[in-house]
Design a protein around this nucleic acid. Structure first.
Lengths: 208, 208
DNA sequence: TAAGCAACCTGAGTTCAGTTCAATTTCACG
DNA sequence: CGTGAAATTGAACTGAACTCAGGTTGCTTA
């Protein structure tokens, strides 16, 4: 499975696109998108602000790209983790566990995604931004469908009680991603514990 | 119970503060904070942009005020709804139901609150903004404590299995508020149905 | 009725981050 | 090498948030 990577191998050898994305993820993830000056990202990469526009049409275009890449990664990881399972409950557990099996950079990307989700609602004026936005929206729907179909499969197999799979899927997904709002690696509770707690919650919610 | 209201009776008779808040809730709630020009709010109220600064130190100060008022309302409503219940499961059910017993304006306020939650993380430069931010943060913690203590009460009474009440509380709260990201009054599913679905999920998560 | 005055309002101008423009420099590749 | 697309730049522009230096309104008190 070719994972969506920040550093795209198709770029020219002197391209700084990857470096910009990495720097932007760090700054947007730590201080927030609005709190981060676009020029700070340039400073961190070691180029003038103007050079940023060689790679991204705008600050928002960079943000939307980060969000799209993260959504792609989430979707890919979901598919990878659940494709081998056959028992619905185990499939559900695997989906939850994989959602929390993330690196620190990916945590920042999730945080950025969650904090700026509402950006995907309204159309963008410029072409490339709008392309990224539409792609991101479709990926959001794809991730929602990942969960919905997993639940529907379990219901039709009789492993889960029949409920509105779409609403239930959104509730499960909402609970999982809400963690990225407050979780910090420096916090008192390790991520593994949170993952186990949520896994149990999801199973009780869905399978009982 | 004196509910936190947008229109404060302590204001002068010609004050437009309430009107500004109402207009801002509508615009920020429909198009988003960043997408809304501060001058549009002035237009809607029927005053020049400069007049806004008589009531709010900045656009962000207005936003923080809206968020603080909504948090105050949520907290008050939680307390009001749960104070009469004695059975833990019924108390839990009442708390969930009251979270979804909201007007359309309150839905917009919840949406604004959720979309801009990360604003509460970093200090503000100006004094009045910072005051509102700190007050809002404290209210967030108070709402989290509302849920945590409800869960702990149920656990110590033996009505809920013993789990980490704080993490569980955040998970429950996260699932509930995540609804305001996607719910629209014009959508296919009525809010009452969503409320029932979430209520069932929360009870299974907590009490089983 | 009118003075006094605080609340309320305004047009003109400032600031600043994001962005555009019109070039110039760099370096991978033939 | 030498060529040209990729990469970079300083200076100028833009637009929305905000400041300033007053002006207006209408309530209060005499």
């Amino acid at each position: 499975m070719a994972r969506a990577r920040i550093v795209d191998p198709e770029e020219g050898p002197r391209s700084k696109r990857g470096a910009i994305l990495v720097a932007a993820v760090e700054r947007f993830g730590e201080d927030g998108y609005e709190n981060t000056k676009w020029s700070e990202v340039a400073d961190r990469v070691g180029i003038g602000q103007t050079a940023l526009y060689h790679y991204f049409e705008s600050k928002a275009h960079c943000l939307l790209t980060i969000m799209r890449l993260e959504l792609q990664r989430s979707h890919d990881q979901f598919v990878e983790a659940t494709s081998e399972e056959t028992d619905p409950v185990e499939e559900l557990r695997a989906a939850v566990r994989t959602a929390f099996a993330v690196t620190e950079q990916e945590i920042r990307q999730m945080r950025i995604l969650q904090a700026n989700m509402s950006l995907l609602a309204t159309p963008r004026k410029s072409k490339r931004e709008e392309t990224e936005r539409v792609a991101a929206r479709q990926l959001v729907q794809m991730v929602e469908r990942d969960w919905t179909t997993l639940l529907m499969r379990g219901m039709s197999k009789g492993a889960f009680p029949v409920r509105d799979a779409h609403t239930l899927g959104l509730a499960v997904l909402g609970m999982i991603v809400s963690v990225w709002r407050w979780y910090r690696p420096t916090g008192a509770i390790p991520l593994s514990e949170i993952s186990e707690m949520i896994e149990g919650c999801v199973v009780r919610m869905v399978a009982e």
